[in-house]
Nucleic acid binder design. Sequence first.
DNA 1: GCTTTGAATGATATCGATAACATCTATTAA
DNA 2: TTAATAGATGTTATCGATATCATTCAAAGC
Lengths: 315, 315
Amino acid sequence: MTVSRALRAPDTVSEDTRERIRDAIEKTGYIPNRLAGNLSSRHSDVIGLIVPSLRNSLFAETIQAIADNLGKAGFHVLIAESGHSLEVEETLVLAFLSQQVSGIILHNTAHTPRIRAILTKADIPVIETGDLTRDPIDIVVSYSNFEAAKAMTHHLHRRGYRRIAFVSLATETNDRMRQRRSGYLAALEELDLKQDRQLILETPEGLSGGRDALVRLLDLKKRPDAIFCAGDVLAVGAALECQRRNLRLPEDVAIASFDDLDILDHLVPRITALRLPRREIGLFSASILLQRILKLGGGVIAKDLGFDIIQREST
Amino acid sequence: MTVSRALRAPDTVSEDTRERIRDAIEKTGYIPNRLAGNLSSRHSDVIGLIVPSLRNSLFAETIQAIADNLGKAGFHVLIAESGHSLEVEETLVLAFLSQQVSGIILHNTAHTPRIRAILTKADIPVIETGDLTRDPIDIVVSYSNFEAAKAMTHHLHRRGYRRIAFVSLATETNDRMRQRRSGYLAALEELDLKQDRQLILETPEGLSGGRDALVRLLDLKKRPDAIFCAGDVLAVGAALECQRRNLRLPEDVAIASFDDLDILDHLVPRITALRLPRREIGLFSASILLQRILKLGGGVIAKDLGFDIIQREST
DNA sequence: GCTTTGAATGATATCGATAACATCTATTAA
DNA sequence: TTAATAGATGTTATCGATATCATTCAAAGC
């Protein structure tokens, strides 16, 4: 008991004992068993984090911010990958709850009804970060995919483009993509541009996905004058293919990206993009989570961290 | 007790009881407490994984392979980031051991003496994956950074280059970078090329790092005819800067990369690179780990998964 | 008919730390 | 001098699952 105290609340133990304990720990190589500790104290120092994919380096910044911040407070982050599957997500959430995590962060905002029910009942903070959803399970910290896509479409319109194509990843399993497409469509509506089915594409992820989408769009009889690549590295793939074909950006075709990857600023010409608060999302999520866990109140339910349009030479 | 059995070994429980238990679980929303389970059974289903950085998408593939494979076997992966600091690594390893992980995977091969000692005594499998180190703590699954860098340098020599520059990230905190540099130097030696201090550079990570290194090398009175970028996205940064300056690859300068990032195959011209068995490392590590944990023997200590040189137009 | 066997289920102690309460000692107040 | 108080340490029960041993009961074998 005294050892337990010496480790968790050193001031409640005398200087002398503390030293003896320190020596003994050194000598025996004692490492506390936190499973037992957590079981006994009924709360763990582990936070569960589920992302759709780790390959996508975009999440890395958010993850890093979360892990850094929680780490400072003595928490650990259990990261898992759902692979964009709601069933896998369900399995993972259950596994996390089994591990008695004291908080869960999900990038997804679409969930199975079962998970919604379970998480609502679970007495731990749950944060969703992928989109500014209207009905969060508990807390949502994000930007609005809908508004961001809409804003970029308006921006392209202001720059003079009238046939704006929209390229996304598969919307079937990705609610964020659906939101972005809705934002794009809403903007067209507001601008009295009529939507052209041929200009709305889905493509596999990766550079090849972006390249293929570009090729398909260039093959159209009525080519677009601007292409809004709303996911992952699609814009990079498209831009590099333009380079290969000696198309001039933005004269022959304009390209804009949803995410501001480093490389967009290094290409020639540099690519217009949305800057999303990836890091801020991580920081804010971590601090809200801590507030909740440590019962410091904190009744925030929805936090909109906004976005910026970064105009560059490609549009 | 019967419930516990029904969940872990259903065949030892009668059809009837099993069904009643299933109903009860459904009705009450019971979620087993795996902390208690692990404490009692004295082994956990969690594996600890420490990587230097998550931002570097290179690790993503290895991580994914590990998590996928261990996930299938019912294990979970606790991922943490050391930020290239040995002290942080030490803290993380201790935290993992406290969590009673049943295995640890480290990307680093350089460790504090304390960690080496603790991990050697710890009665769990420890896998190192970053380099084919000579004295693994327990198991090492990797390719040889030394041999890979040496092979690429030889390859450049065979292609006719004689002033080969070597660009890496900071070697101070990164043992893999040191190994690569040693490999490069060993090749020079074997080739009777004399080493030129001006051609050996360290640069910060990221595209700008690569760009800056290129600029510094081009500013030399005696320019290199080939540049071997041995880390992260340095080669991409360098290649893009060449593009901006209208330098022809490989006529004006050749560029080779240590890692085969997707984008290297999409640039014009495409960049020569080493293909490293990132995914295979993950797969192999996971299966060795499982073998060890499940006591299926498996005495492998060092596994060299090799590498390939992919010759493209940039050299 | 009685023992044997095995499948199914139950009872108990335990994993290692901690919450809650108890005890002890030295110091201060009355 | 005695009671009160606070600081330090010790005791006990507990968290929830599981290893282990015990029990029950029905079918099978002699």
